[in-house]
Each structure stands twice: as C-alpha cells, then as structure tokens.
Nucleic acid binder design. Sequence first.
DNA 1: CTATTTATGTGATTATATTCACACTTCCCG
DNA 2: CGGGAAGTGTGAATATAATCACATAAATAG
Lengths: 210, 210
Amino acid sequence: MKFAKIPMATIVRLSIYMRTLQELLEEDVEVISSERLAKQCGVNPAQIRKDLAYFGEFGVRGVGYRVNDLVNQIKDILGLNRPWNLAMVGLGNLGSALVRHGNFIKHGYVFTAAFDADQSKVGKRLPNGLIINHISELEDVVRERDVHVGIIATPANDAQSVANSLVLAGINGILNFAPVQIQVPDCCHVENVDFTIKLDSIAYHLSFGG
Amino acid sequence: MKFAKIPMATIVRLSIYMRTLQELLEEDVEVISSERLAKQCGVNPAQIRKDLAYFGEFGVRGVGYRVNDLVNQIKDILGLNRPWNLAMVGLGNLGSALVRHGNFIKHGYVFTAAFDADQSKVGKRLPNGLIINHISELEDVVRERDVHVGIIATPANDAQSVANSLVLAGINGILNFAPVQIQVPDCCHVENVDFTIKLDSIAYHLSFGG
DNA sequence: CTATTTATGTGATTATATTCACACTTCCCG
DNA sequence: CGGGAAGTGTGAATATAATCACATAAATAG
C-alpha cells in the first residue's frame, strides 16, 4: 500500500477527509469535488489531490470523487477495514470517561482490556461489560486478548513504567494521555494527546494575536 | 514579543520544552545544554536553539541554559505568566472528567464557568465548587466571569452552535473535543483534540510499518 | 460530432522547516 | 594567564511540504 515516503501530515489529513466524507454520506451526497471537500476541511484543494495521489487515483476527471468509494479507499489506506483492540491503562476520571466514550467504537476501535493499579478498582465492571484487571496482570492479559494499542491515562509519574510493560507485552502502538514524553523503542509508535499544550498554543495566540 | 513569523510547530515545541524543564527543576537541575534537553524532548539540539532564537538569546555560550530562567522566559513568550479562565461546555463523561482533571490548574488554567444543555444538570455543583449553568445563559455568564477560552465537549452535532455562541460572547480561543471541524471567524483560534484521529495514525503505522 | 465546462492528476515552483557547521563566548585547569 | 573543552547563536545548506498551473479526461449541450 505504501509507495513512497508519506508525510505524517498527509496521514492525519486523510483521517480528517474521511470524517468529513462520512458526514457527507449521511447527508446523501454521492459525489464531491476536491474544491468543496477542501473548503469543508479547511485545506487547499490541491493538497487533497496530492495527498490521495501518494496512494493512487481515486477520482474521475471532470466529475469528482464518489463519496462512498473514497471513504472505503481511505480506510484501506489507513488500515481501518478491520477492528482494532484497545487496552485502557488507568481508570481515573479521564480513563473512565474515555472507555465510556462512544467515538472509539464508532470508528472500529474496541476496548478488550482495562487495567488499574488501585486494588479497590480491580474486578469492577465497566459499562461496556469489561472487568478491570490489576496492572500486574497487564502482560498476560494483553497477549490473551490480542490487544493492539495501549492507551495510557495514568498519572504522569506512572506513564513510563506502563509504557515499558506495554512494550514488553508486544504492543507496538500507544496513545498517551499522560503529560510526559515517554521513551519507547523504535518498533513502537506513540501518539500523544496533551490538551494543556493545545491550551498553551491558544494562550499564545490570544496574547500576541498570531 | 513576536519578532517574525513564528512557525506554529515552534510554539508547540516551546510548550514541550517548558514541561521538560519544569520536571528538571523538580529534580534540582540548574543548568542544561540544548543537547541534553533535546534528547529528553526527542528533537534535534539545533532545533531548540533556533526555536528560542526567534525570541531572543536565553542561553550562555559554553554553559547552557539556566533551567529556572528559561521556564520563565518561555512562559513570557507564550503568554503564560498570568491566569487564563476557561469555560467548559458539555458536562457529559468527558467534560466532567476534564473539569476534575488536575492538569489544567497545574498550568495556570482555571475553570470559571460550566454549561450544559440538560436542565437536570443545571444547578449541580462540580468538585471545584463551580455550579453548572444552562447553555442558554452562556453569553451572559461568559462575559460576567471574564472567560478567555471555551472548551467544547458536547456531542458532535452541537459543537458548531456552541462555537457560534462562544464567538458571539467575545471568545477568541476554543479547544474543541468534538470530532467535527468547526467553522469560526478569523479572530477566533481553534485547537482540536481528536483522539480517534491519533488512533488512525497508529493504525496506519501498525498496518504498514511506517 | 464538436465545443464547452468541469474537475482530476501531476510536474514545476514556491514556501517553509530542519539540520549542519562553524565562529564565538565562557569556563576550567594547570 | 593561556590553552583546551564545552556549548550557544546563526548563516548557509538541505530537506520537506504546500501551492500553482496546466495538460488531460469525462460529461453535457447544441
């Protein structure tokens, strides 16, 4: 599927295009031009065409893109035409809220394990039926339940050791909500979600009108 | 403070440097080189020096950077040497968890208002003492309490209308957790936090080894 | 069947961002 | 006080990404 060195920014934009296309699909839009899609996504039309061109030809000249087809083609590109199993580590306020959050399942991500260090939480049943395991069981449970991606929602201090365990358990993808830069081997891909950093950007813009 | 066109990526990295420096400060590290800081942040040392060079000279040749000073200088650069008032809109699972989350206050962000469309939630008191207002009161309350940044944690369908209200209320900065691209006038700066997009990137990497 | 319109795909161009490499400054040790 | 080591600041070089602009393909109308 991958023909050249693809910019990371392209991958992120493909997700955004896909989300917008899925909305369009619900509004029964069958065909869309790069120009209209670009406007809705807030990017340049040529950007969309270039991004797609990395992976093939998906449109029809003089016509545009068939919305339904393009959604599926982007899913193929990103590897989303299959389920992905998630493990939540850390069931405090944030972790618990995320497990309950409908967006994951909507996009094909399924929680198949949940861990916490707090013994009083172990054994409790989450709304989706999942039972919380103790963090010490992480490695075994992750293997048993074929977890693909670990989500870290622990306090900052625990994030690195959790990451280490996940890597040991064979996990190659981590979504990290803890506000620290975790170190992992190259085989493991980490994405960080740090909202205070986003707030800092907003603060900068508000302060200096950027 | 702003001397040239600053790359957005630089601003984001400055936040990351600051986080790392704050950790170093807690470990009583007084001085650090761009090389060591770069390693901890996962970037190139020249990158750090160049990022800082946009705003002045903060280091000492042959020595490095005084950690404490640099933290404060980055805070000045980003506009963080003052409190910022936040309003949470949408107190479902995610919104509630975020209001409880300690990271905001730790970095100088204070919730001064909270809104929900659900009448049964209106009047309830949050752990930080804040009382939930009905969304219809948004414009008045935002002005009264001098809110600077609005956080949208509503369902996707409501996000745009909330954004419109925030803009009408004079808000110029929005942190959007809803998985839609909201449209706002140029005066308003939006940052999106969309974790399913991050998961898509992970899925791509796991699928195609990028 | 031809002319016109629409809109993709892409080479060329421009803009932006990162990294290199070295002059220059400070510190330290003898 | 002088020489080496450490480490910043920055112009130049490189790498990367975004945009333009146009050849090309499909659709439609006359």
